[in-house]
Amino acid sequence: MINLRIDGLDVQAEDGWTILETCQFYGIDIPTLCYDHGLSPYGACRLCLVEIGEGKNAKLVSSCTYPALEGLKVKSHSNRIIKARKIVIELMIARCPNSKTLQDLASKYNVQKIRFKIKHEDCLLCGLCVRMCKEQMMSGAIDFIGRGKDRRITTAFDEKSDLCRTCGGCMYICPICELRCQGPDPPGAVCGSCLEMSPTCLDFSSEAQCFMVESGCGTCVRNPIKKNVNEMEE
């Protein structure tokens, strides 16, 4: 057993637990997005930040990837964390304004203004689908391509992959496109951006295989489907 202290509370963690798992065990609420207990932790979304250490050496780490260590002192809701989380949420919404998951988070953390240009992407690059495909579906048909701002999720050469069994696991787990905000509810200033809602991929495809049809790829609302949007408008 590992002894550590979270928010002033002495707690015990099993060997191999992360900070997040320990917090969840004790019912301490930590928001997550790229984490799923059935998949390996990835640490990409930076939402589950906690503060470890004390004084000058205190730093923020993602609790989903940081192991629970003996004698560790953890804070889960310090001012520093909240400030960082708010910016993280702001950055997320600036990228994907249509996600209900994100809008709810913004509402919860009282993020009221987006100071950056809205991008209208439909993928946050959290990598849940990539890990789902690889780890749970044992397939590995999709992966991250490119790097930095050009990073996206797709199949090799954007072509239908032989490995894909069109199981739809990737769509099932996506926090962005699977669940779209249906309007300004709950009320919050950020929700204004929802006005430019684009339909979800499920609106176009009754079968759960939109990923791999033709040159369809990675995240659903891409070129071939966009064509459909125009048709619908007409």
Partner: peptide
């Protein structure tokens, strides 16, 4: 190696 992974490395 899955083609996907190679493509991923080649574009990184």
């Amino acid at each position: 190696i899955p083609l996907n992974q190679i493509y991923s490395v080649a574009t990184f």
